[in-house]
């Protein structure tokens, strides 16, 4: 089952995603390597990731805060994305059970 609207949305999402991915390579030689624009682009990835996770952690319950701490500790101990993710899931699962939150 698919509606016209959802097909349009998926095709549109696919088109902009492909355009951006190809566009980065095609524009690479023209992108400024110095100045404000370059500095701005350099800071986007970290800022977007911070903006993605902050509301879930900072406005979360103690379970989310404990899980974020566990994720951070395991990441610095192992430098392993999967281990850090697994620790976060495990702690949030246990904390919600124990704290009932």
């Amino acid at each position: 089952m698919i509606t016209t609207a959802s097909l349009l949305a998926i095709l549109g999402m696919a088109a902009v995603t492909l355009a951006i991915k190809a566009g980065g390579l095609l524009l690479a030689e023209r992108l400024p390597t110095t100045g404000f624009a370059a500095a701005w682009l350099r800071h986007i990835p970290g800022a977007v990731l911070a903006a993605l996770v902050a509301p879930a952690i900072l406005t979360g319950k103690p379970a989310e805060i404990a899980a974020a701490l566990a994720t951070t500790l395991v990441w610095f101990a192992s430098r392993n994305l999967f281990a850090a993710m697994a620790a976060g899931i495990l702690v949030v699962y246990l904390a919600r059970r124990l704290l009932g939150a």
Binding site: A56, A84, I89
Partner: peptide
């Protein structure tokens, strides 16, 4: 969320952020 699976997203991007 009952299995903590909702947190996989937050945890993964938090770890990616820390790596940056």
């Amino acid at each position: 969320a009952a299995y903590g699976l909702d947190f996989a997203f937050t945890a993964t991007f938090l770890a990616l952020l820390l790596g940056m």
